[in-house]
Design a protein around this nucleic acid. Structure first.
Length: 405
DNA sequence: TCTGGGGTCCTAGGACCC
DNA sequence: TCTGGGGTCCTAGGACCC
């Protein structure tokens, strides 16, 4: 059996855990620049606040409802998460930390899974003040579903989804879009074929699933039928890509400002690389105008630099960032978002110090895209910007740009 | 005025080779 | 006018997750 432990309203619960007087009060936690709502307590959910909702649209309502509003404090959430994961790990043989607030536990040899889960829940609550829900089933997908049921329909916060009839009832109750791995696109596809309930998906022909939903669809249906198709990944490998990016509070035009923030992002990426004892072969820089603004020229600049020798050295990465920015910066644009991505990450086998000249960097800046007048739209089921438009290949290096601060 | 910040996996199709 | 067939590797982009 697999148990999924899932923290309830994690960020909101973290804020409450250090302020017990907020018990029973509505709480929301905001993203960078206090832009969006990214977590809500049950009370805030009941008042109708949505995940990802822009704060400016509900500012008055927040005041009216006397909601307690917090700017996100990721360092705190990470600390609390580590504490919880430590408790969970000490109580099972194998565990996969799936996200900051979720972990799959191997409950194979547990005699009474429900009793154990209840004890575990109590321990976490006592030591961290964070309420968790635990779903137990034969597969990850079913355990996910079980944790939903645990969260919404039980007093104990624990639910075992193992009985055959119970599984059938649950799958008839939930729609396909509520399943782990089914997003907007797949929901549409399934609904078009008359498949609405999870129970229908479980009975769908495998050949059809393979053709239309690829291997993911096949695995999903198998999991619903109690056949494990997603393994517990105990030793999560180090990250394959690392990104540091931010939206600015106000739009910026200045090369100097962009260069400064991107240099900080570069250091941050280098630090994260060193922390997991890895080095990266590639770095990418992107800058982007406000995607929500209509009737203006949108600009998206993206440049990748490949290092001759993989590195996690801040100075080298910052130098590459400067080069990249110099080539994608357009002085006529107002920028709203910028970021640095390191990828092609490999283990840091030996300590290397390979400084190379700026000229080397520009030679290595292989791939370059600048999109102008892009048709910006929200990707389906995701906040990521998808870019459609004509790619303007990099030709001549731009004339030097004066610093404007 | 104001709209988050991370990640992963899978696949199609092009590049390239014999 | 004729103009193979396979195989592998790489990468961009889609879809999804928290």
């Amino acid at each position: 059996m697999i148990a999924l432990a899932d923290c309830n309203n994690f960020f909101a619960s973290c804020e409450r855990s250090i302020r017990p007087e907020l018990e029973g009060k509505p709480i929301v936690v905001l993203s960078n620049n206090d832009g969006c709502i990214i977590a809500r307590s049950n009370e805030a959910k009941a008042l109708g606040y949505k995940m990802g909702e822009p704060v400016f649209k509900v500012r008055d309502k927040l005041v009216r409802n006397q909601v307690h509003v917090f700017s996100g404090n990721v360092a705190l959430y990470r600390d609390i998460s580590e504490k919880i994961m430590h408790i969970l790990a000490s109580e099972c043989n194998a565990m996969e930390i799936y996200s900051i607030d979720e972990a799959f536990m191997d409950f194979t040899d547990v005699a009474a899974p429900d009793e154990k889960a209840i004890l575990l829940r109590e321990q976490v609550l006592k030591e961290t003040k964070i309420p968790i829900s635990v779903g137990i089933a034969k597969t990850k997908v079913l355990a996910k579903l079980a944790s939903r049921i645990a969260k919404k329909h039980t007093q104990s916060g624990v639910f075992v989804l193992n009985d055959k009839e119970l599984i059938e009832r649950a799958l008839s109750y939930y729609s396909v879009e509520e399943l782990w791995g089914v997003g907007r696109k797949q929901t549409h596809l399934l609904n078009d074929k008359g498949i609405f309930q999870a129970s229908q998906l479980a009975k769908t022909d495998e050949a059809w699933l393979r053709r239309h939903m690829k291997i993911g669809g096949v695995r999903l249906a198998r999991e619903l039928n109690g056949i494990p198709s997603f393994a517990l990944e105990e030793n999560r490998p180090s990250k394959k890509s690392i990104m540091t990016s931010r939206s600015f509070r106000r739009e910026v035009a200045s090369f100097g400002v962009l260069n400064e923030v991107l240099s900080n992002f570069a250091s941050s990426c280098a630090f994260k690389l060193r922390k997991q004892e890895t080095i990266a072969k590639k770095i990418a820089v992107f800058i982007q105008t406000n995607r929500f603004k209509s009737d203006v020229k949108h600009h998206y600049g993206y440049l990748e630099v490949e290092f001759p020798v993989a590195t996690n050295d801040s100075i080298e990465i910052i130098k590459a960032v400067y080069e990249a920015l110099d080539r994608i910066y357009d002085r006529d644009c107002l920028y709203k978002r910028a970021g640095v991505i390191v990828s092609d990450i490999i283990p840091d086998k030996e300590i290397q110090l390979n400084l190379f000249s700026d000229q080397d960097i520009s030679k290595r800046a292989k791939l370059m895209k600048v999109y102008d007048d892009v048709n910006c739209k929200m990707g389906e089921g995701t906040l990521r910007l998808s870019i459609q438009g004509t790619e303007k290949q990099w030709g001549q290096k731009k004339a030097p740009i004066a610093f404007r601060n």
